[in-house]
Amino acid sequence: MVTRRDALKLSLGAGLSLALPGTLFAATPAPMLTRPIPSSGQRIPTVGLGSSATFSSTARDDASALNAVLRTLIDEGGAVFDTAPSYGASEEVAGKAVQDLGIADRVFWATKVNVAGREADAKADPAAARAQIEASFSRLGRDTIDLIQVHNLGDIPTQLGILKELKAEKRVRYIGVTSTSKPAYPKLIKTMRSEPLDFIGVDYAVDNRDVEETILPLAAERGIGVLVYAPFGRTRLWQRVGERELPDWAAEFDATTWGQFFLKFVLSHPAVTCATPATSRASNLIDNLGAGRGRLPDNAQRERMASLIEALPAAS
Score class of each variant (00 low, 15 high):
Val2Asn: 15
Val2Trp: 15
Lys9Ile: 06
Leu12Val: 07
Gly13Leu: 11
Gly13Met: 13
Ala14Glu: 08
Leu16His: 12
Leu18Gln: 15
Pro21Phe: 14
Pro21Tyr: 15
Thr23Asn: 15
Leu24Met: 10
Ala27Gln: 09
Thr28Asn: 07
Ala30Leu: 13
Arg35Val: 10
Pro36Glu: 15
Ile37Phe: 02
Pro38Met: 13
Pro38Val: 14
Ser39Cys: 04
Gly41Met: 11
Pro45Tyr: 04
Pro45Phe: 03
Thr46Ile: 11
Ala53Glu: 11
Thr58Pro: 00
Ala59Pro: 12
Asp61Thr: 09
Asp62Leu: 05
Ala65Trp: 08
Ala65Cys: 10
Ala68Pro: 04
Arg71Glu: 12
Ile74Gln: 07
Glu76Phe: 03
Glu76Ser: 08
Gly78Glu: 14
Asp82Ile: 07
Asp82Pro: 10
Asp82Lys: 12
Thr83Pro: 08
Lys96Thr: 10
Leu101Ser: 04
Arg106Trp: 06
Phe108His: 06
Trp109His: 00
Ala116Val: 01
Gly117His: 10
Ala124Gln: 07
Asp125Cys: 06
Ala127Trp: 01
Ala128Asp: 09
Ser136Ile: 01
Ser136Pro: 01
Arg142Glu: 00
Arg142Ser: 02
Arg142Gly: 04
Leu147Val: 05
Gln149Val: 12
Leu153Phe: 01
Ile156Ser: 01
Leu160Gly: 09
Gly161Val: 01
Gly161Gln: 01
Gly161Leu: 04
Lys167Tyr: 12
Ala184Val: 01
Ile189Val: 03
Ile189Met: 01
Lys190Asp: 03
Met192Pro: 05
Glu195Cys: 02
Val202Phe: 06
Asp207Ala: 11
Arg209Gly: 08
Val211Thr: 09
Glu212Ser: 14
Thr214Gly: 09
Ile215Ala: 11
Ala219Phe: 02
Leu227Asp: 07
Val228Gly: 02
Phe232Ser: 08
Thr235His: 02
Leu237Met: 08
Leu237Asn: 06
Gly242Tyr: 15
Arg244Met: 04
Trp249Tyr: 05
Asp254Asn: 14
Gly259Cys: 13
Gln260Gly: 05
Lys264Arg: 12
Phe265Ile: 04
Leu267Arg: 10
Leu267Cys: 12
Ser268Cys: 07
Thr276Ile: 14
Pro277Glu: 10
Pro277Asn: 13
Ser280Phe: 02
Arg281Glu: 12
Asn284Thr: 15
Asp287Thr: 04
Asp298Trp: 09
Ala300Tyr: 00
Arg302Gln: 01
Glu303Ile: 04
Ser307Leu: 02
Glu310Lys: 10
Ala311Ser: 15
Leu312Pro: 14
Ser316Arg: 03
Ser316Pro: 04
